[in-house]
């Protein structure tokens, strides 16, 4: 069992938010919402190959891929009219892409509390972030080496 730890790049993103004054955190999240990588052809239009995160208040889909060296790539599909959820996706792709399966599984579910977003976003909506991470972890568990 790996010790819980936030992967290095994700930790940087968390700190970037935490260091911002309250009124700029939403703007930063909007910025991340614009940086969600577009879906590759094999997933584009193939939502059946992705998993829906029902807790998100808008249609939101996630797929995770694991390379031979155990590094993870996450793909997200969220509509443009859901910028907050897209922002969560942007944070997770920036912070977790390239991490190993073990590192993603060791990420604490509540890593985002340190970002200070609860001061600007309602708690129910923030749960979307945990829900997305929970799906990613569940998808990755099958790849975990015992």
């Amino acid at each position: 069992m790996t010790m819980a730890a936030v992967p290095a790049r994700l930790q940087e993103v968390v700190e970037e938010f935490a260091d911002l004054p309250r009124e700029f955190r939403l703007e930063a999240l909007l910025d991340y919402s614009r940086r969600v990588p577009p879906l590759p052809d094999r997933l584009e239009g193939h939502r059946d190959a992705m998993e829906q995160v029902h807790e998100c208040q808008t249609p939101f889909f996630v797929a995770s891929e694991v390379a031979g060296d155990q590094t993870v790539t996450l793909w997200f599909d969220a509509p443009p009219e859901a910028p907050t959820t897209r922002g969560f996706a942007g944070v997770l792709s920036e912070g977790l892409n390239g991490a190993t399966v073990g590192e993603v599984l060791a990420t604490p579910d509540g890593f985002w509390t340190a970002m200070g977003l609860h001061e600007v976003i309602s708690p129910l909506r923030l749960r979307g972030m945990s829900a997305i991470l929970a799906r990613v972890k569940r998808q990755l568990r099958v790849h975990a080496t015992p």
Binding site: L26, L29, Q57, T58, E81, P83, V120
Partner: peptide, 22 residues
């Protein structure tokens, strides 16, 4: 809006934002 970032992505010209939560 429900999505608290939606106003920032574009709104009716002249509209102000009232955030239900904040």
């Amino acid at each position: 809006d429900e999505d608290v970032l939606l106003y920032e992505t574009g709104h009716i010209p002249g509209a102000v934002k009232i955030d239900w939560h904040n």
